[in-house]
Design a protein around this nucleic acid. Structure first.
Lengths: 190, 190
DNA sequence: GTCTATAACTTGATAGAC
DNA sequence: GTCTATCAAGTTATAGAC
């Protein structure tokens, strides 16, 4: 994919723009400046502004759903699964910063029925995540924590990476993953 | 404060509205419907729409800054300080859900110089938080974790409470605080 | 201090020439 | 497939009556 099509450039620049300014504050004219096409030309490639948001949200949701599916297939050990899920979140955040930020922060601007679909997928994902924690507790691999609280604490704690990680930082992705897993699994206490 | 002034009602309903729809997607007409005043009447009480956002962001920033100051005064033990900071975040999130959500998610729509001020305050707060972690490591109260990674993981992990906590949930604030502190300090591993 | 009316501007999207 | 021109609707904020 050396030469990008106009359509690809629209989606890529839109993700960058939406990440920086938010979906609502980003106008088609702003996007036009970045893509190098007049706003009217967009409509040969997309149906509407919201279609861009829909695709970004759906594509990222699929990355998480597919990743979770693979994890559950690869291992049945809750600790291994938890570690793999943490790695999944970090890898997705680092691979496409803009797109995952839009997925995290701008989904609320989806219209129906896309919003309902999105929330249904998210709920299902959270359920699978919580199941890992609950199984870990049952097998005594994890301490007896409140599964819902552990779920949201861990899930939310993985949302800063896209904001913090820049290629210039000296830490490698492998080390970053190791440190975060260590922190969430073992805590800070000595 | 039994009877609320128009000004108070504007700020209160604005926080609710901005939380639900986002700042940019919230119009003065939307706000008008909730407050029960015509949009033009707002301008007897406020200078602009952004002034509302500015006040919400600044007020909440001050809550965190003041809270941090009190914590550093009350104790010099890093573990006690960390526990108190976690409680601070949870208490603020539960006491005024809407306002803290706007503070968390909508600050990017501040114009200069308010945006720069906000970011400066945030950076200073993060520095004080990181200092607790670094001191804890030096005193061997905490394990030798990467302080920046621990800072952001813990800080971010506290951002789901406003979204999850509803009075109808059976768990008390005290128990919620205990569970989250336990999780972040000791991890999930048994 | 609230209202009606409206100014001044920006928005997403379309029509139609090339 | 890109452009110019433009529309219809929505935006924040103000002027001035009461």
């Amino acid at each position: 994919m050396v030469v990008k099509t106009s359509k690809e450039r629209i989606f890529e620049e839109a993700a960058n723009l939406f990440r920086e300014k938010g979906y609502q504050a980003s106008s088609m004219r702003d996007l036009s400046d970045r893509v190098g096409l007049k706003p009217s030309s967009f409509y040969n490639h997309i149906k509407s502004k919201e279609e861009i948001l829909q695709k970004i949200c759906l594509d990222n949701a699929m990355k998480f759903v597919d990743g979770m599916k693979a994890i559950k297939k690869d291992s049945t050990d809750p600790l291994e699964q938890l570690q793999a899920v943490i790695r999944l979140h970090i890898d997705i955040a680092i691979k496409d910063r803009s797109s995952v930020t839009v997925f995290n922060d701008e989904w609320k601007h989806l219209s129906e029925p896309h919003l309902a679909n999105f929330l249904k997928m998210r709920k299902r994902y959270e359920k699978e995540f919580k199941n890992i924690i609950e199984t870990g507790i049952k097998k005594k691999v994890f301490r007896k924590v409140n599964p819902a609280i552990a779920l949201f604490t861990i899930l939310t704690s993985l949302k800063w990476i896209h904001y913090w990680h820049k290629p210039k930082r000296k830490i490698s992705v492998k080390d970053l993953e190791k440190d975060i897993i260590n922190l969430l699994v073992n805590g800070v206490s000595s």
